[in-house]
Design a protein around this nucleic acid. Structure first.
Lengths: 134, 134
DNA sequence: GACAAATGATACTATTATGGTATCCTTTTC
DNA sequence: GAAAAGGATACCATAATAGTATCATTTGTC
């Protein structure tokens, strides 16, 4: 089971890289060389991050992307939300109104608790916080 | 993200049901009627549970399945292992020896910790423990 | 012994999510 | 006006998930 999918992972890595540099604006072409990510895929990811207000975009020659927010305010939970949807471990109640799963509702409760813990753990992690220790 | 897939879920539900009854042996046909699970799918699931030593099987007329173990000793983590493989949240190190993901190793560490917590939480949950409170 | 009702083995199929590619258009700078 | 950027959008490949289908074998009952 993957907690973090490839697109989220690429996003995190790339944003971390940008945050670390002095240079502000980067073209996808530049980033792809350094980070070994398939170019069309990173383009797609960046277009999404732009739409979601995480990145600022400049079109035209010498254009590129820069962070819209300080690295302290970009949280990986937000990135996960963007690429993976709202985070939850439990699918039970979303599908049917009456859960046929009486026997395992104890379990569902447990899973909810785990989910809350997990979100609480992930919540404070920002792009900036991942820089520490390098 | 699903912590528990459909087959694991069906297995849990069915084993809980069996554990609750006085009757010991159940045919798939019987169970399917009560639990509204697609018959061929439950058959597949039960064949697997038999192979894995969770269920005892009797062929022939009036045959069926019964628990090989007391409900206290059937743990959902084992069922998850059977249908979903070994539990982990992190895929990083499994693929390549040198992780290109220097920036996010802090994150990988966090995820490992979460994984440990999660396993610790799930570990004590048995089929018997899910009966409580009914 | 024949038949029915059960599991055993195994192969196939459908749907969805993931991880990408490809193409054409528009904008900007030189 | 050409080159180099992003914008929009549609397409494709693979794998996982969720099931179906079929034939063979076993066993109890008449």
């Amino acid at each position: 089971m993957k907690l973090i999918t490839r697109d989220t992972d690429y996003a995190i890595r790339t944003l971390c890289y940008i945050a670390k540099q002095k240079q502000k604006r980067f073209s996808v072409t530049e980033l792809v060389k350094v980070l070994k990510i398939p170019r069309p895929f990173l383009r797609k990811i960046f277009q999404r991050l732009h739409k979601e207000g995480i990145l600022e975009a400049c079109k035209g020659k010498n254009g590129g992307f820069s962070l819209s927010l300080p690295a302290e305010k970009i949280f990986i939970l937000d990135l996960m939300k963007i690429f993976q949807g709202e985070f939850f471990l439990n699918e039970c109640l979303l599908k049917k109104k009456t859960c046929p799963n009486i026997y395992t509702c104890t379990l569902k409760k447990k899973i909810s608790d785990i989910e809350k813990y997990l979100v609480a753990q992930l919540k404070p992690i920002s792009i900036a916080s991942l820089q520490i220790g390098r």
